[in-house]
């Protein structure tokens, strides 16, 4: 089974040289730490920055320089600032190659829910609805089951949707799966996790064909 860092490391392997990538809040933010050295990747922060760098050194925080999670950050050489309309312009016109975000639920047809729990949590969608509606490629980082042990990979989402038919790939603590027209296709198992365990944790339709290899993380 993977921890959060394991999930981030596995997702980092999906990033290719030359990609512009938008990272959501939570596990997706950690992915930045595991992009292979020497790879040319530019991180987009939807509050208005291309070329996001690591957190600043203590004492060098700049209140005018934050990421979409409102954290203090730095820029890397070659970065650019822009306004919020242009930021979502580049997202809508599919200039961003890969979007990585978290989810509360994903359905077998690629619907995603991650912004609202009726009666409990009302935080808002932020930029998530814009991102999922337009992204060329969306990878979701999430837990396979909730705290009560119930599957979050469903035949149909129960929670209010963020977007429909948009998720392409999911990485959980148990598995890597593609979302296909036929349902979730199991691609890889987390170290020490059996296909049976993944079947039990997946409520939506799961396609298992042939030998399922164990993930290679490091």
């Amino acid at each position: 089974m993977l921890d959060k860092i394991g999930i981030a490391k596995r997702i980092a392997k999906e990033i290719k040289d030359g990609y512009y990538v938008n990272l959501g809040i939570g596990i997706p933010t950690l992915v930045a730490n595991y992009i292979p050295q020497g790879m040319n990747v530019v991180l987009q922060s939807e509050n208005g920055l291309l070329g996001m760098g690591p957190f600043p050194f203590e004492g060098e925080e700049d209140p005018d320089l934050i990421n979409a999670g409102k954290q203090t950050i730095t820029t890397v050489p070659g970065s650019a600032f822009f306004d919020s309309a242009m930021s979502f312009g580049m997202i809508r016109s599919r200039k961003v190659d890969l979007t990585i975000l978290g989810a509360m639920e994903v359905s077998e047809s690629g619907d995603i829910a991650n912004w609202k729990i009726p009666g409990k949590m009302v935080k808002g969608m932020g930029g998530a609805m814009d991102l999922v509606a337009s992204a060329k490629n969306i990878i979701v980082a999430m837990q396979h089951v909730n705290k009560a042990g119930e599957s979050k990979l469903l035949s149909k989402c129960d929670l209010p949707l963020t977007g429909v038919n948009c998720v392409k790939k999911i990485v959980t603590e148990l598995a890597v799966l593609d979302v296909t027209p036929q349902g979730f296709r199991l691609l890889e198992r987390a170290p020490g996790v059996s296909v049976e365990e993944i079947k039990k944790a997946t409520q939506g339709r799961l396609i298992v064909e042939g030998e399922i290899p164990e993930m290679i993380i490091d």
Partner: peptide, 21 residues
Amino acid sequence: LLSGELEVELIPQGTLATRCL
């Protein structure tokens, strides 16, 4: 919000920016 004192309309961030634009 939960007590109904405040009315809230939540809209996607890009939609918000572009409606201003």
